[in-house]
């Protein structure tokens, strides 16, 4: 199950529509399910190389925005952040970068160490 407040996207088509729907907001898509290792919508597994229990990706105006978390993977965020303010900061930074037309944004926090732990 997804979040209570956030809509649940049932199929790949819904995911695509969600990405296309908003023109002035950042689209944050979380692939994966809490209780299952398999993705609920397996359509993107190959395309987006989804093999973690949970992956978050960012889109702005149908453009995939990369973010440098110092993890080596700038395409997506496949780790869990335990501080909600951190998550808010990251989303804000990415949104601002995207608004300025950037394709790659540097995360305000460095996760290289945290992930190792």
């Amino acid at each position: 199950m997804g979040s209570v407040f956030l809509p649940h996207l049932k199929t790949g088509w819904h995911v695509d529509q969600a990405i296309l729907h908003d023109q002035d907001r950042l689209v944050v898509i979380r692939f994966g399910r809490d209780h299952d290792k398999d993705y609920e919508v397996p359509d993107f597994n190959e395309m987006y190389e989804l093999y973690d229990p949970m992956t978050i990706m960012f889109f702005y105006q149908n453009k995939h925005i990369l973010c440098d978390f110092s993890t080596g993977d700038n395409n997506k965020m496949n780790f869990v952040i335990h501080d909600d303010q951190e998550m808010i900061d990251i989303i804000e930074t990415i949104f601002r970068g995207a608004r300025k037309g950037k394709g790659l944004v540097v995360s305000p926090y460095d996760y290289s160490y945290k992930r190792k732990k």
Partner: peptide
């Protein structure tokens, strides 16, 4: 429908 094709991904 093939996912992703609709938006050129």
């Amino acid at each position: 429908y093939i996912a992703g094709i609709g938006r050129g991904a």
